[in-house]
Amino acid sequence: MKGLEPNTVAVTNQSERLTMLKRGVGAGFPIMLGYLPIAITYGVLARQSGLSNLELTLMSILVFAGAAQFMGANMIALGTGMVEIVIATFVLNFRHFVMSLSFMNRLREVSLKWKVPLSLGLTDETFTVSSLHAKEAKEPHGTWFYGALILTAYISWVGGSFLGGVLGDVIPGRLSQSMGIALYAMFIGLLIPSVKKETRVALIALLAMLINFFFSLFISDGWAIVLGTIIGGGCGVFLLKEGEEAA
């Protein structure tokens, strides 16, 4: 940047940010594809559970966690007490603590004023997509990439919930059921390229699958996923080389 006028520097900065923003939206697009039908379904279900449009949309704005919101709406419909709903939500969403620890550790160099909002936007999907775009964390304005990725997902989730609440089932049942595979396919599409690059990654993922499956027979899905992630990831201590990262 030496020798450039301050003005030129500012313009360059701006266009770099815009590029990162666009790339973030692009990376967030598969999440949008997966979220929209699920969010609409949530909106419909929550409406039937007795939540108003305002309430169900507010839940999407404030909670932003698909599985927990489905469960919450269901428990509300069943007349479950508040304490139980909140505890169940905590258990189901505790996995985000582990994910956030992993993501925040990668964004160590970033200031807290970025870390906090980014961490609040972590879901299974935004976390996994962000993590497999590890190189952006080291690029200038990388936070704009992650911010745009998360906002794309967030807007689809909130918008889709609202649409579901207002319009009802706008997606034909056949199609919406088929779209239930979307997020799983996205997870697979994220995992496979890493597996091809490094076979040990497959071992970590397979172990996590088996551990999750085993524990899900005995304890709640929430804790089973937490254990699968922690123990499966623990094998990475021995399997991954120094400084090896998701790419």
Partner: peptide
């Protein structure tokens, strides 16, 4: 711990895919 945290995304992907799929 860094290595463990770097392996978390892969483990999370595994646990999220199966048996949920």
């Amino acid at each position: 711990v860094d290595r463990w945290l770097n392996a978390i995304p892969y483990a999370a992907l595994g646990a999220l895919i199966f048996p949920g799929i």
